[in-house]
Amino acid sequence: MELLLPAVLNGLTTGAIYAVVALGLTLIYGVLHIVNFAHGSLLMLALYAVYFLHAATGIDPYAALPILAVGFFALGYVIQRLVVQPVSHGKDQNILMATLGIAIVIDNGALALWSSNTRTIDLPYAFDVVEVLGAFIPLPKAIGFFAALGIAGVLWIAIQRTDLGRAIRAVAKERQGARLVGIRVEHIYAMCFGLGTACVAAAACLLLPTFYVTPQVGYAFVLVAFTTVVLGGMGSFPGALVGGLLLGVVEAVAGLYLGESLGQIGIFVIFILVLLFRPTGLFGAKAA
């Protein structure tokens, strides 16, 4: 029992970062109605960006977050506007293939440039811990948890309260109506792709202090993120947040009882159960 609480708390910290990755994925899905296959590769790219920025300038990953979020937002915008959109000719299946192609280019580019060696960064506070309800949580994980919730909160307010957010929600459901009020739909698509990519950059900054980077690292996260999006309801914002936290806890608790390396089994058992019994997801009714 005294192991369960730390496992749950640890799971919540991981889950919050899953949630940020999943928010990016669900934002793009909600508006473009496609699964962005390049999402994991962009996360990997962002982790390398954090790593090399730290190696070159010694900048702290948390301090790099605003810089990388803006940089990756621009990258995402440009990818959608200059690659995905021109090659897709407005057909969803083409968008899917375009993002898959981008993923392959990024993955193999990373492998060619940086080899498949595992890299980590050393931070002076990496082994500091904070005590929460009698359990000890690594300081970087605690920071990551609150930062992730903060990012989700900012994104939520932006989607609910700003003109851009209203336009994003409008385009998600009614493209023709959106055009007729003067919304440039292609611009909104690119903004969503940019915001989704910025989410991934933010997640990378919160992740690297306690994690590693290799050219394959994105896959583990994008599978969890995809499961999160399905669990929460495709395109649902609260679904991605709750789903991410839930899967983090499920993974940690499953790891506790089945052994660390089998923790992800819990995630995929949940995935199958959701598909069997509630294919629209927890918040699917709202998203539909």
């Binding site: 409008a170 998600a172 459901k173 009614e174 023709q176 109506g177 007729l180």
Partner: peptide, 12 residues
């Protein structure tokens, strides 16, 4: 233009 079929944003 106020289009045929209204085209309001149902989720807003």
């Amino acid at each position: 233009q106020v289009p045929e079929g209204r085209r309001v944003f149902p989720n807003l």
